[in-house]
């Protein structure tokens, strides 16, 4: 599908006829209707600004289970070992490169959820990133472009929004030195466990990088009195990391 779109884009420069043929296979976003807006009122209320929290306290006298760690295939374990042998002083985030998935969902700055007909939009305040989650029944592209946040489709299973994301740029990572392949696939199960507590259970699989899928749970608290702020990282970024991994800070006024 995406190949056709790319073809179509080139065709606009060539002939109108070919453009129409190519566009016909593109995914059409339906115009919203009064009924489709009304349907949203039946969904759980995910709207608003959320901040990641440590989650509910464990039951008295118990300790929370340690979070599951990714189990790397030998090739990716070797890459991690090589990274740790010569770790850079900082990541490229110091140069304002945004994290992409899955890191974009774990920033210490809030997420804003906007639900509209056929789509859930997540705005991440950190680096002003946007995730577009299509809930209109469309499939993933057959050959998605590889992007920082991937291509997301979602469906409601009762009160849980299940988000399926593929097509990740290899510029993103699962953690310092923990790489993934183009086959990475992320499923997020999002639900309200209390009126103002959003739980997101994230399962990551990658047949090339991981020996088995691993799952993490995150919790978010809603702040009705917050709005999402501007965050232009390039505005006054005095931090840096160079190609050799050396970090710097510019104190020139």
């Amino acid at each position: 599908m995406l190949k056709a779109c790319r073809f179509g884009c080139r065709c606009t420069l060539v002939t109108l006829g070919l453009t129409i043929a190519a566009t016909a296979s593109a995914q059409i976003t339906k115009a919203p209707t009064a009924a489709s807006w009304a349907e949203l009122a039946k969904l759980p209320d995910f709207g608003g600004v959320w901040e990641v929290t440590r989650g509910p306290a464990p039951a008295a006298g118990t300790r929370p289970a340690p979070p599951e760690q990714p189990s790397l295939t030998p090739k990716y374990a070797e890459m991690l070992k090589a990274y740790r042998a010569h770790p850079p002083q900082d990541s490229v985030a110091a140069n304002c490169v945004p994290p992409g998935m899955p890191g974009v969902m774990g920033q210490p700055y809030p997420l804003e959820f906007i639900i509209s007909p056929g789509k859930v939009t997540i705005i991440a305040e950190a680096y002003m990133q946007v995730r577009h989650i299509y809930t209109d029944g469309r499939p993933h592209p057959e050959d998605p472009d590889l992007t920082f946040n991937g291509h997301s489709i979602g469906k409601w299973e009762k009160d849980t929004l299940v988000v399926d994301t593929v097509g990740f740029s290899k510029a993103t990572s699962l953690g310092a030195g923990i790489n993934h392949s183009e086959k990475m696939h992320i499923v997020e199960r999002m639900r309200l466990t209390a009126p103002d507590n959003l739980e997101i259970v994230t399962t990551i699989d990658d047949a090339e990088a991981l020996t088995k899928p691993f799952t993490r749970t995150a919790n978010f608290a809603r702040h009705r009195d917050w709005t999402t702020a501007e965050y232009i990282c390039q505005e006054n970024n005095r931090n840096s990391v160079d190609e050799s991994g050396k970090a710097g800070i510019n104190l020139t006024r």
Partner: peptide, 26 residues
């Protein structure tokens, strides 16, 4: 702070990551 502990504990970006850069220079 909870935030600082979270930042230091998070080897995986799927947890709470540092927002922008490492604090190792301080």
């Amino acid at each position: 702070t909870i935030l600082m502990r979270s930042i230091l504990a998070a080897a995986l970006v799927i947890g709470v990551a540092q927002a922008h850069h490492s604090f190792t220079m301080f």
